[in-house]
Computed example of a mutant assay.
Amino acid sequence: MAAVLLALACSNASPQNTYPLNNDPQVRDGFQHFYNLDYDGAMQRFQAVQREHPQDPMAAGYVLMDTIFRELYRQDLLDTTYYAHEHFLSSGHKSDIPEATHKQVDSLTDSAIALADARIKVNPQDKDALFARGYVRGMHAAWMTLADHSFTGAARQGLAARNDSEQVLKLDPNYADAKMAVGIQQIAVASLPRFVRMLVGIAGIGGNKEGGLKLLRESAANGTATKVESQTALSLFLRHDQRYNEAYAVAQGLAKQYPHDFLFRLEEANLMKDAGHGPDAINIYKTVLFDAAKPGFFIDPRLQLAYFGLAETQRGQNDVSDAAESYLKAAQQPNCSDWMRKRAELNAGMMLDRLHRRDEAMKHYQLAAAAGGDQTQADAARKLMKSPYTGT
């Protein structure tokens, strides 16, 4: 779940306590593009690194990372609001990810793991190879969770990532990057009911929420390859536990460091919304949208995410008319995914019903229930076509 935003940033970690390739100037440059959501620019640099280091598992890992998150962004699946609560686990949402992309992700994962395995076979105490394998497994676990909703497979892959990282820390307790995977797994396992752990085959694995948060803070403070990723994971878990002030402090720091990262800026508003500070959240959403109107300020901003969050906040403030307008703007964005568009159409219809504009509401329910593509909103839309929405 916390792997929704993988990243790298320069840090004060000692070179011997991180994977050597992480300190390569071209790798760092690639991650600067990645953190501006310039996935194509990052890919050019990571592929150049891979060509120069064809036998290096981390080089393949960088390409895998960019491939995964470029596609998740295209699918509108990197808005953490979707993951801050458990409903996404049972939403039934299925992405229209091309089969070629699935195959590419699996191929890159298998290739990187095979390269790491070859090094570990020669030297079982190769901490860098163990880290690289865990890093790749962790990303693949994120992909399986977010893109495939394959929770059993993702849990097992995540556990394998944790095991690799724990081995790294036994060999080098100062290898801060390795603390992230262990921390994420400790929190995730501690948050799962025992029967769920049994279902996914990790019943005997221990979890510790506060211990996991401590490890994430250490990785965020001292890591290299996982510095920013640990901060985003930390913010997400704190938000899930309604520790909004702590989460906002982390998100605000990321937004200040990367002001042209649309997702980091959006997260500030999302946290204000969840914390119940509606007017402040509305101001931040509007500021993000204002900046997005500046040519070149953001790269490929997914404005539907901002409009939808703005609509939800306006709805919470009982500003029904503005909420309806914002939902409609979300649905109208040209790069809006089918599932996000239908969510927006459904909620726009609800607001129009509250405004007693039944004929308009019916049109949007029909769009939300349209055949083909995502069908997660269809049942609710059909019910509302029979009886007007009267809720909040």
Rank of each mutant, 00 (worst) to 15 (best):
E99D: 09
Q317P: 04
P124Q: 07
R302E: 02
T80I: 12
R343S: 10
W339M: 04
M58F: 09
D172E: 09
V49W: 00
W339D: 06
M139Q: 14
R302F: 14
A293Y: 12
S230V: 08
A114P: 07
L384G: 00
W143G: 01
L328N: 00
L263Q: 01
H149C: 13
I113S: 01
L355A: 00
A369P: 04
L8H: 11
H356G: 13
R137T: 05
H356N: 15
D319P: 10
F264Q: 01
S337W: 02
A381V: 01
D319Y: 11
G30C: 05
G276P: 01
Q252T: 14
S107H: 14
F298P: 02
L236V: 01
P334D: 06
F195H: 13
Y307A: 02
Y83H: 05
A176Y: 03
L234S: 08
R341Y: 08
M350D: 02
N222T: 09
K103G: 09
F290S: 14
L6N: 12
L263I: 10
G207Y: 08
V200M: 08
A330D: 03
A306I: 01
A116L: 10
V63T: 11
A188N: 09
Y244F: 06
Y135H: 15
A100V: 10
P124R: 14
V63M: 03
M350N: 11
Y248C: 11
A188I: 10
N163V: 11
N174Y: 04
K227C: 10
N22Q: 10
Y82M: 15
R302S: 04
N23Y: 10
K329C: 00
D96L: 14
A331N: 12
V228F: 08
S321C: 06
L146T: 05
L146G: 02
G204C: 06
E360P: 08
Y19A: 12
P388T: 03
G207A: 08
N222E: 14
R133T: 02
H240P: 02
Q104G: 07
A269F: 03
I113K: 02
K209A: 15
M198Q: 13
G276D: 08
P54M: 14
A369H: 02
K342E: 07
L238D: 01
S337Y: 00
A60D: 14
I113N: 04
Q55G: 15
S191Y: 07
I282Y: 03
F308L: 15
E345C: 13
R156P: 08
D241N: 11
G134E: 05
F262N: 03
H85L: 13
G349E: 04
G41E: 04
K386L: 13
A348V: 06
N283A: 08
P20N: 10
L271N: 00
Y307D: 03
D24I: 07
F46P: 02
D274E: 12
D76G: 12
I184R: 07
Q104I: 11
L171P: 04
Y135V: 05
F262M: 12
L384K: 09
Y73H: 15
L171G: 00
D359R: 06
A114K: 12
F34R: 00
G138I: 01
